[in-house]
């Protein structure tokens, strides 16, 4: 671990979480899945670092 920021990094966590849930309102399961996939790709590009993404993938395994 090194490239990925795993410390608390959201100034207003409830707001951000609410944005995420809100974005899915009114969507079918299929639409939500597609939306999530696009979101992941957008954020992945923003991160831009292969190592950080590898660490995130490992972390997501729980």
């Amino acid at each position: 671990m090194g490239m990925l920021n795993t410390t608390r990094n959201l100034a207003a966590p409830d707001d951000v979480y609410d944005m995420l849930i809100h974005a899915h309102e009114g969507k079918t399961k299929e639409e939500s899945d597609a939306f999530n996939a696009r979101l992941i790709l957008i954020l992945m590009n923003h991160v831009g670092d292969r190592e950080a993404i590898a660490e995130a993938l490992a972390l997501a395994e729980v």
Partner: peptide
């Protein structure tokens, strides 16, 4: 199924955004 979802997500983004085209 999930591989297809990501593939289609790439194609949807690529139509509008250059960053997705290399994918």
């Amino acid at each position: 199924e999930v591989s297809k979802i990501f593939r289609d997500a790439v194609l949807a983004l690529a139509a509008k955004h250059d960053f997705a085209r290399p994918l």
